[in-house]
Design a binder for these strands. Structure first.
Lengths: 151, 151
DNA sequence: TACTAAATAGTATTTACTCCTATTTGTCAA
DNA sequence: TTGACAAATAGGAGTAAATACTATTTAGTA
């Protein structure tokens, strides 16, 4: 292993880019240099960037690219499964009276957050690797998908 | 049971309000009617409201309340543990190249998202109650806390 | 009852994201 | 290879969410 963290090395990156190109064509998407650049910048980092963060990186390659293009492209990648949005990110902050132990299911379409309770999820055991290194304040099982009304 | 979902009935609500009052005083916070109203409106719903949603409700009681007050108050409640923010909500959308199966730890202070991988978390078994009712697209164990740099 | 620190109202600003439109470009078929 | 067309992009405008700022009000207390 000569690559730290989850970063992708050059050979892997080129291979992934080829796969990505096919994936675009299969999905009926055009293979634009901007799209490739955004994809590659995303793979090159392990910092889970926002659209804004990637925009700054891609701008070094395409100085005239717009933030909207970066954002739209990332959402498109998410749709074809070439990249993912970090679960739970990107929505307005929501609050919870939190009276009982429970877990959340979030509908990606209508954005409803629905409580459910499954006892085995109440006390998840963390690996020592994590609990030694970080102060874990909250741990939960989080589900996303389509609710009964949207599905 | 004559209360649907997680909604709190009147008796419970009054009891919770008393507890909340003590909790404020213990934390050195003033007990203002606005604060009480916000807290009670939060408990009365199971829709996991945003600050904006609660603002609309509380405005019926205090027509001149400001959105900022609602938002600040909710963040304060979260700090003293009288309410909770829904895990993962309230931040800019973040993306992930998602090359390998992994889970996320999010630092609440610096907002870094850190990957970790704990095999037992890869295939969580859902209760039938959920998988029958909803189309679950993603399921994950999500951790929040303080990272090694902020802790 | 009067003082003080904390909280609030109202407004302004910042940030994240989405929408709109004219222009450009990748793809496909002749 | 070229031309047509749908898709994608650039740039800017618009919208929503969250935060910051400041003058005023209020809860706690002595």
């Amino acid at each position: 292993m000569n690559n730290k963290n989850n970063k992708t090395n050059t050979i892997e990156l080129d291979e992934k880019t080829r796969q990505f190109t096919s994936q675009c064509r299969e999905a009926g998407l055009k293979v634009t240099p901007q799209r490739i650049a955004i994809y590659r910048e995303l793979l090159k980092t392990d910092e889970h960037p926002s659209a804004e963060m990637l925009y700054e990186k891609v701008k070094k390659i395409f100085p005239s690219i717009s933030l909207d293009t970066v954002n739209r492209t990332l959402l498109t990648l998410n749709e074809i499964g070439a990249a993912f949005t970090v679960v739970g990110s990107g929505d307005a902050r929501r609050f919870d009276g939190g009276l009982h132990e429970h877990q959340h299911f979030r509908c990606v379409k209508c954005k409803r957050i629905i409580d459910f309770h499954h006892k085995p999820f109440d006390n998840i055991k963390l690996p020592a690797e994590i609990s030694e290194k970080f102060t874990v304040l909250r741990k939960t099982v989080y589900l996303e998908g389509l609710c009964n009304l949207c599905g």
